[in-house]
Simulated scan of single mutants.
Amino acid sequence: MKPPLIGVEEELLLVSTDGHPLPRNKAVLEDLGDELDVALELTRAQVEINTPVCATADELSGHLNDMRSALAAAAAEEGGRLLAIAVPPHGRPAQLVTLKPRYQEMAARYGQLAREQGVCGCHVHVDVPDKDAALSVCNHLRPWLPVLLALTANSPVYLDQDTGFASWRWIMWSRWPCSGPPPYLESSEHYDALVAMHLAAGTLMDEQMVYWDIRPSTHLPTVEVRVSDVPLTTDETVLLATLARALVMTALADGGGGPRVDSEVLRAAYWLAARDGVTAGAVDARTAEELSMAELLERLQREVAPALTELDAVDLVRDGIERALRDGNGAVRQRRAFREGADFVALTQVQP
């Protein structure tokens, strides 16, 4: 049986030459034309890349590089810059909401929460056989979601301040009523009942607002891993997508309902991942054991070793993790530039 196909959505930020959010996403997409699958996002300073379905890491890398470059060129035509950064570096908390009926309704219902959500994530879609398989995969991946967050954290500086967190985006995103890690999902009926409760209560507009860090897609035969900041580089996005793919393959091979982990242990693991990224300690959500993030990343590689071998991606993942630990991920590199008084915004700029 062939490995599952994958696709990636990257949200990217439009800024002016001085680094403030640039509310020109509609004009940028018009300049780009219809050659690429790029969409408007919640605020007018955001755009979203949607890659084609991919079978290999190389294929995914090529699409990401081409799409980022084309978007950066379109942003330049509008006098702006395209940033691979997860929160606005300068400006005000509230952003202009995109003039699209759905987003305008969100602004009306959720107020400041919607207006302050100019944050950029990365979502990895991995093919699964059906909804029941997707829910089982969600359960299997829950303990590993904080590790993926730590590895790709890319939002330490928000509105000219070092927040003290490697992923401030995740902290901000956690304010939505149906966000963070999903609960342990007993069955399709359990999932449907939870969604129905949210809809009846009015906490969600529709099922698309199930913003858990992993969820069954509402419109594709995939499971969607949504925990990550948008990574600084396409290499980091490919690393994330490969690990997500390998975790899904491992879960499908294992079957069953997945491990039950204590919600408070998982909460602690998330909080540490969001604060420290790859630079400090961690909690293994499966065992409640304290250890370094480097050790936990080694455990992750062992967990998915057979899948990585099948994907011919052992070296890709090992080298990518070693590079993140040695040179730093986006959060480390941004914070270093910020503290040294360097142009940390330029560090995140995508080149045409």
Rank of each mutant, 00 (worst) to 15 (best):
Ala107Trp: 05
Val304Cys: 03
Tyr110Met: 11
Pro221Ala: 07
Val227Lys: 03
Leu83Val: 04
Ala75Pro: 01
Val8Leu: 14
Leu291Ala: 14
Glu236Lys: 02
Val225Met: 04
Gly202Gln: 08
Leu12Ile: 03
Gly320Phe: 04
Ser16Arg: 06
Arg142Ser: 14
Glu186Arg: 07
His123Gly: 12
Gly111Thr: 02
Gly121Arg: 08
His198Gly: 03
Cys120Gln: 12
Asp327Thr: 02
Glu77Phe: 00
Glu189Tyr: 04
Leu194Ile: 13
Asn50Ile: 03
Leu12Cys: 04
Leu311Met: 12
Ala86Phe: 01
Ala288Lys: 02
Arg333Thr: 00
Ser179Leu: 00
Glu59Tyr: 11
Pro221Cys: 09
Gly121Leu: 06
Arg267Asp: 11
Gln104Phe: 01
Pro259Lys: 09
Glu289Phe: 10
Glu264Cys: 07
Arg169Lys: 10
Glu78Lys: 13
Arg339Gln: 07
Thr163Asn: 03
Cys138Ala: 09
Ile85Asn: 13
Leu151Asn: 03
Thr218Asp: 09
Gln334Ala: 06
Arg318Asp: 10
Glu207Leu: 12
Ser16Trp: 00
Ser16Gly: 11
Glu295Asp: 15
Arg68Tyr: 10
Ala73Arg: 10
Leu32Cys: 10
Gln208Met: 12
His140Cys: 09
Leu36Ser: 08
Glu298Phe: 09
Thr222Pro: 08
Trp170Pro: 00
Met205Asn: 04
Gly281Tyr: 15
Gly33Tyr: 08
Arg115Gln: 15
Gly62Asn: 05
Thr17Glu: 14
Ala75Glu: 05
Arg339Trp: 06
Ala305Ser: 14
Thr242Gln: 10
Thr309Arg: 12
Gly281Gln: 12
Asp160Arg: 01
Asp66Phe: 04
Ser188Pro: 11
Phe338Ile: 00
Leu14Glu: 04
Ser179Glu: 06
Val304Arg: 05
Ala294Thr: 04
His198Met: 00
Leu252Arg: 07
Leu272Glu: 01
Leu347Trp: 00
Asn25Pro: 01
Val304Pro: 02
Glu9Arg: 05
Arg142Tyr: 14
Ala70Arg: 14
Val119Met: 09
Gln112Ala: 14
Leu96Glu: 11
Val278Pro: 03
Glu207Gly: 13
Trp144Pro: 05
Val157Ile: 14
Thr233Lys: 02
Val278Lys: 09
